[in-house]
Nucleic acid binder design. Sequence first.
DNA 1: CTGTTGAAATTTTTT
DNA 2: ATTTCAACAG
Length: 685
Amino acid sequence: MSLARVLADLNPQQRKAVQHGEEPLLIVAGAGTGKTATLVHRVAWLIANGVPPGHILLLTFTRRAAAEMVRRAGAVLRRVADKGESVPMPGSSRVWGGTFHAIATRLLRRYGKAVGLNPRFTIHDRSDSEDLMNVLRSELGLAKTKIRFPQKATCMDIYSRCVNGREKLEDVVCAHFSWCKGRVDELKELFDAYVARKEAQNALDYDDLLVFWHALLTHPQVGPKVRSLFHCVLVDEYQDTNALQAEIIYALCPDGRGLTVVGDDAQSIYSFRGATVRNILDFPKHYPNTTVATLEQNYRSTQPILRAANAVIGLASQRYIKHLWSEHQTGQVPRLVTCEDEDDQAQFVANQVLEHREEGILLRRQAVLFRTAHHSMVLEAELAQRNIPFHKYGGLKFVETAHVKDLLAVLRLAENPRDEVAGTRLLLLLPGIGPVRARQLLRLLAEAGGDFQAWYQWRPPEACESLWPKLIQLLQGLATARQELPAQVHQVRLFYTPLLELHYDNPSPRARDLEQLEEIAARYGDRPSMLAEIALDPPSSTQDLAGPPQRDDDYLVLSTIHSAKGLEWDVVYVIHAADGCIPSDMATESPDQIEEELRLFYVALTRAKSCLYVCHPLRFFRGSSKFTDAHGLSQLTRFLPKGVQAEFRRVTWAGPDDDLQGGEYREAMALSSQRVRDQIRSRWS
DNA sequence: CTGTTGAAATTTTTT
DNA sequence: ATTTCAACAG
């Protein structure tokens, strides 16, 4: 009975969820309640009870989460096996783990023909999709209408919401993009062109991956076959799935047998991407014999931190049924730190981080969280100056930098000569080739059925006379490639380096990035999977690419709150807790948006295990220009009203120049500067 | 047609 | 500060 002994580590609610039978199961798991452990044990339990691993589908929010869970489930099974129980663990069949998009890619490569796909499709990431949208926008003459037409990014947002939310264009525009109401007809035209052009290019965007997966499942012949691949389907972070994803799940398990979903309605933070909390709330209605298991015992945070987090989520107008509690009764009360300005805030964080490290808390057990990527810029400078190593998650990704995209464009065009986005990007790099010639050349290539030989017919302008044949040879070599990936990247690099120097002011760090890319290319199996993996799960930095961080490598974590989802640290600093930052100015139009920002703040607070600092700089710069000295006073975030503040201890950061404290922060015994300002403001407000 | 220059607008979160 | 757009020279 060693499996039972392994399960004895879990609490009764968790155990009940793990050992639940075949009927549909909804696990409502509050922050830090051992959700991952429960899911991991359930996977292990299913396998131990005879479900072949290869028939289990585990859908997660990130690739990292999937890999982690599959690894841990394996570890649980090994523990069981060590104690003498025989466990079926056929090496040949592995759990299907990954994001919706990654799983869709795998299935479509194998079965996509049934829904009219060429299995060698390439994947357009967000910016590729925007590029294509932009091209069509100008082709259709929408770029210079009298009243400015929505930006490419906005067009993409609208399109994506229609597809993912399965909503009518009119409704989407009215609800979320009301300033585009007059443009519905033009948008329709644009989207028609967009769909057609993608098809012609044999390229899929993120949304297509889901749409075609769904189509595959509802296909009369192939659908049942694909469905029968999986006996059990487990979905993590269900509160952040969208309507289309819910339909995919429904198509996979129409009667809910073998279906487990896990989520927390209080942590839904992706509605801007079309996610809807209705999926989790209505789950029991869609699957009538659902069992709901609620996990409320929190193993992560101390009670004082939970009290603060509970108080914050208590401000929500929607009711959340859970009330988290913890056995760690004692602990430091969360600090609400008032700082003079952003520089002070950075100094406070840097000092405090070092102090905690003195106490023995490694840098990587501490994290700084913020609403938007650029909120950490001043802090990054401060950390760099003090030689404190850090690693930033979220924000601009390594593969989103221009030079990496350039290099990948060459590989992508070789892989799929119809990929116009990649082709245009590459051709525009050559001197003497602009948008018009690029389009001609791509048409020529398409007419030749993708044979790069056809480009020899073209007479290049002087500026690229010598480069032109080199490019053709490169592409022909890559198209017929039997070479290893690093060798392919190396060839592209040889061709591209002179162009890099031509196009960018400071080429050497960029050149180094590309050398790194060449080194790690060996980690990917083949070219199609490399391109797909990079599009679906962009590594955030070259460090990230270099593989799992070294054991003795210690660095502070900086992360957007969104990217911090599901993670935890001993010490958490939430910076820029000012109205306008949290909630973001961009997201205060509707009550729903504000409520999502509240949940976002709640997610940030619940990442902390033992120490929590919320920082509020009083002065901040509006806009990032140094010439426009437009800094103003900021208000504390509206999510910390008086009543909630009672769960915090207010302190003021004095700054290193303060003679009294010499860099220590001190308790705000007397009036903090915030309160002085409050007094002043009370004269008119 | 391309590539450069200067002026004007814009500024979240991400598979 | 960065990105996008329009105008002009080669």
